[in-house]
Design a protein around this nucleic acid. Structure first.
Lengths: 342, 342
DNA sequence: TAGGCCCTGGACAACGTTGTCAGAGGAATG
DNA sequence: CATTCCTCTGACAACGTTGTCCAGGGCCTA
């Protein structure tokens, strides 16, 4: 009778398993496991035989099986908005470094600001049983994470607070930063100051707007509706928004840009104009020093590092109640924010 | 007698399993599996009962176990140099999008240009049994990957060729791009042209240098040793290298920067000088248009997309021999490269 | 009403690893 | 020489899922 093949296709391209190594080395399965994991209690001679078999067969431990058995994946998930965004690159890298220091791998995904996609990604990561999650929220309702967190997946929210759920958070001081930036413009003589920001659904956008209003109110300035524009940060939207504020009988004399993408477009718009217009942007950008752009800088790497360290402290058993860390921002004057009204 | 607890700690914080769901719904294990995987052969009524149990318990399938059983992880690994580098952000994002379209997650790691760290990362990913691997090599010997590739892990090398191993590659035309850039400078009257590049260990660095030499030779110019400087791309090294070339009795009148980091430092150095010096940089950088920097641009997203698509074609069974794809670069004149010698 | 077929559901093994435990053999001790 | 203790090793179960196979019941047809 022919042997029965119960499965349709060979898995893993027929990789050798510990069983194969054991057979070849003439030892028991568990002994191979011990060698692979550098556990004590193996004679040097046995170890050598096993090691030879491993090399000869090209064996590599299957971590999927290991994970199943041990219950820890030694990996964490990072869900952010867009890996291609210059703010998130360094953040992601910082998280990776911390993960690496803890022997963990990083799985990351971009939500593209789509709450559904965020949830899908997060849940996929949970299904993989990542040990922990760092999430830069796109949506504002994270109750779907409740069972996961309860089940033990440590979670830290970054840059924006979690929605309708108790959790650790690491934020930048959006309100304070924007307030400082706008106050800086006011201190240089501006009163008609425009604000171009991200969609109001996004927490940092509204916080920065709140900072703008606070600074204006502090100075006794009444904000006109036409000075504020929220929405997508695509150039196609930001450009006309800026153009509008800068034209008309009573144009603004200064602009506050709500994030790095807005700043970039604003710089382009202003570059094409004769009358100088002051500009302060939230988030630093590469080469901003050469272009003389005054910014409110948040240290993306520090944010990532802080969040990751917090996460691993949790994983290592820290059991304090959910914390909220707020990192300060820094005003870097470079010229564009110090222009006086024409 | 008390029940025996065989294991030290509860895994996964005591997550419910399919068994628990089955018990609660009063059905068999496999039926739950069927519902979870939307397999046919379950009455609507049964399905509803199972679904209710799932929701009530907050069950989520353990993909580790699934992977073990199925042999496919639906994830790919990406090893690059530095996620924080503006060239790799978009590349990584492009890879992610393709992966997503194929239902796969992306695990990535930064090698920090360290061959050992590259190997460590790659092997860790292999141990996780990623279905495929995209590697931007740091080292120049990848024989360690041979057993892995033989065992079925599809691999594509990007940006730099694999060392001592047959494999798919997706490269940019570094030689051609550099040659074109340098020729552009020559066409604008320069003869004394400096080249500042990355470490010679890195393939793209030597290719670009080769392009530089080719263009110079084409124009009948003999390159002086002092015009060429290879090494780390840290500002601390690039800055003095540039300063040296620009001083002395016979300074260069133009610079060719070997990659984006070098370009950035070069721009900073040149900004502090009176005499205008022409500059062409390899890799485009954000805001380069505003700064008027002429560059040789390679489309990072296109490189990533091409590589990922290639990888998935392999995974879907394409069995052609290893291919080598070379993507063209594009010269974007913006002013700095069109300056004539003083 | 009997026979056959299809549809649904469940028992069981297997994926590759690690934790537990017990046994074999040698050294040390009385 | 017998006993104890220790070291090294291997058999076995379990992790949570999916593939295979079989059983039972309902329905249709003759």
């Amino acid at each position: 009778m022919a042997e029965t093949t119960r499965h349709s296709e060979p898995r893993y391209g027929n990789r050798p398993t510990m069983k194969d190594v054991a057979a070849r080395a003439g030892v028991g399965l568990k002994t191979v496991s011990r060698v692979v994991n550098s556990e004590p209690g193996v004679t040097p001679d046995t170890e050598r035989r096993v090691q030879e078999a491993i090399d000869a067969l090209g064996f590599r431990r299957n971590d999927s099986a290991r994970v199943l058995r041990k219950g820890r994946t030694a990996s964490i998930g990072l869900v952010l908005e867009d890996l291609a965004d210059p703010f998130y690159g360094p953040l992601s890298r910082a998280v990776e470094e911390v993960a690496r220091a803890h022997g963990a791998l990083l799985i990351n995904g971009s939500s593209a600001e789509d709450p559904e996609r965020e949830e899908e990604l997060v849940l996929a990561l949970c299904a993989r049983r990542v040990d922990g999650l760092i999430v830069i929220p796109a949506g504002d309702d994270h109750r779907y994470l409740e069972p996961e967190i309860k089940a033990g997946i440590a979670t830290v929210f970054v840059d924006r607070p979690a929605g309708r759920i108790e959790a650790d958070m690491v934020l930048s001081d959006s309100f304070g930063g924007a307030r400082e930036g706008v106050a800086h413009l006011i201190a240089h003589g501006h009163r008609r100051i425009g604000f171009i920001g991200d969609q109001p659904r996004i927490h940092t956008a509204t916080e920065r707007l709140r900072g703008y209003h606070a600074a204006m109110t502090d100075a006794g300035i009444t904000v006109e509706d036409s000075w504020v524009s929220l929405g997508s940060t695509e150039p196609e939207r930001v450009r006309p928004a800026a153009e509008t504020m800068l034209s008309g009988p009573e144009p603004v004399t200064a602009l506050f840009a709500g994030n790095n993408r807005v700043t970039v477009t604003a710089v382009r718009v202003l570059a094409g104009r004769e009358r100088p217009v002051a500009l302060v942007g939230f988030d630093d950008i590469e080469l901003a020093d050469l272009l003389g752009i005054t910014v409110i800088s948040q240290d993306a790497a520090a944010v990532g590092r802080t969040a990751a360290e917090h996460l691993f402290r949790r994983l290592d058993g820290a059991d304090h109640s959910p914390a909220r860390v707020e990192l300060p921002t820094r005003l870097i004057p470079r010229g564009s924010g110090e222009l006086r009204p024409a």
